[in-house]
């Protein structure tokens, strides 16, 4: 997993940012540890059509050790805010994390 670090201010972003709030437009791809903590989370009991077979499932906003946040699926046991998590796989552009 890589994150984009702003050449201007050093803030890291998940995904492919076009610009940084500092005004910077240049980014360096850095290898992320794949470890982070749960910033917030929820377990869904209703979902859009294409995810109905997965119900119930948990999603979380994960704050990576490098600082960037992303929305991810939680695999395995349910997690709570503050729990340490680690990346277990990336499937279809979606990151799956589990309790570390």
């Amino acid at each position: 997993m890589t994150v984009a670090r702003c050449n201007g201010c050093g803030k890291t972003h998940a995904g492919a940012p076009r610009f940084c709030a500092c005004g910077g437009e240049g980014f360096a791809a850095i290898e992320a540890s794949g470890r982070g903590a749960v910033y917030s989370c929820t377990t869904l009991y209703a979902a859009a059509e294409r995810f109905e077979n997965d119900l119930p499932f948990q999603i979380a906003i994960v704050e990576l050790e490098e600082g960037a946040r992303l929305t991810a699926r939680i695999a395995g046991a349910a997690v709570s805010i503050g729990d340490r998590v680690r990346l277990v796989e990336e499937r279809g552009g979606v990151a799956f994390f589990s309790a570390a």
Binding site: S40, C41, T42, A46, I59, R73
Partner: peptide, 18 residues
Amino acid sequence: GEVAAGATFPALFAMIAR
């Protein structure tokens, strides 16, 4: 991002609530 991970609007506001 969030929608690909399965988020719905109730789920986004649930994370705000949490």
